[in-house]
């Protein structure tokens, strides 16, 4: 009798613990969503006031009501395109080497692997300082688009390598073996079997890396992205500004109207990020349905 009562009591306590834990988890999940919704609400209500086609295609201005964002959009496009051109071949190449050609573990590859993993966790401002010392000053590329793009390439390179490696790892062993058994070289097996199979995963990684870089501010401030440029850049050697720099700049302005401009610029940046991320999701789902 007493034994049953005790076990029932025990059961109730366990159930209660269960319920408490569930509520805690719900709050943990809910808090994140709540903060995001609040943030989005604030940004949208502040930003929609100024959002218009004119805002997007107008030049920068010191008058909050007249300013646009076009030079920053062009600057961001320049920097990100160049970053992609530099970082993608290097990153994918490094990953293919580490994953496909150098499959036997040795000290060197382990050392490289360890470094890449650590580099991915280095704060972005450190890349900015590296970029300032190496590209801006030592290589004398000045405070130009190419300095910014090279710095951003360094920043996303570890990410591109790691994600590409993961994508390559997911390709079944049989693809390589089958190809090799039919007499192909290692290069042919990689080129015609492994890379196409891993392509959606690699592309997703590239897009996610670049969408991270689009929002980066700190390293570009250090390598000299300007707060105000009167003209659009004409080449990779020109001075530039980018979207997150303008957001940062406007948020710190004394004139009140700039706060709305900052919110609107955040909206523009968020839409760009959403588009990029949706492409990544689409690519991933396509690769899943194929497999």
């Amino acid at each position: 009798m007493s034994l049953v009562a005790a076990s029932q009591k025990h059961m109730r306590m366990r159930k209660r613990k269960d319920a408490i834990f569930k509520v805690l988890c719900f709050f943990a999940a809910g808090l994140g969503v709540l903060l995001l919704v609040l943030f989005l609400y604030k940004i949208v209500t502040d930003g929609l006031v100024r959002l218009s086609w004119t805002f997007i295609v107008s030049n920068l201005s010191s008058r909050p009501q007249r300013t646009g964002i076009w030079p920053a959009i062009i600057g961001s496009t320049y920097v990100m395109t160049l970053t992609g051109i530099i970082a993608v071949p290097m990153g994918v190449g490094a990953a293919v080497y580490l994953q496909e050609f150098n499959t036997r573990k040795n000290r060197l590859t382990e050392f490289i692997q360890l470094n890449i993993a650590n580099l991915a966790g280095v704060p972005s401002i450190v890349y900015g300082m590296l970029g300032l010392a190496v590209f801006v000053r030592w290589m004398a590329l000045k405070e130009s688009i190419i300095s910014g793009a090279l710095t951003m390439s360094l920043l996303i390179l570890p990410m591109v390598i790691i994600i590409t490696q993961e994508a390559l790892k997911a390709v079944p062993r049989g693809y390589r073996d089958g190809s090799l058994a039919l007499g192909s070289t290692t290069w042919q097996a990689i080129r015609y079997q492994v890379l196409p199979a891993a392509a959606p995963g690699i592309l997703t990684g590239i897009i996610l890396s670049i969408s991270r870089a689009i929002g980066e501010t700190a390293p570009l401030i250090v390598v000299g992205a300007a707060a105000y440029v009167s003209s659009l850049p004409h080449g990779v050697g020109d001075r530039y500004t980018v979207l997150p720099i303008k957001i940062f700049d406007w948020a710190g302005e004394a004139k009140r109207g700039f706060n709305e401009d900052a919110a609107t610029a955040i909206l523009v940046l968020m839409v760009a990020l959403l588009v990029l991320n949706s492409i990544a999701i689409y690519l991933r789902s396509r690769s899943r349905s194929k497999a």
Partner: peptide
């Protein structure tokens, strides 16, 4: 035709 850059380091 001028091209002005203003920054605030």
């Amino acid at each position: 035709d001028s091209d002005i850059t203003v920054n605030k380091s």
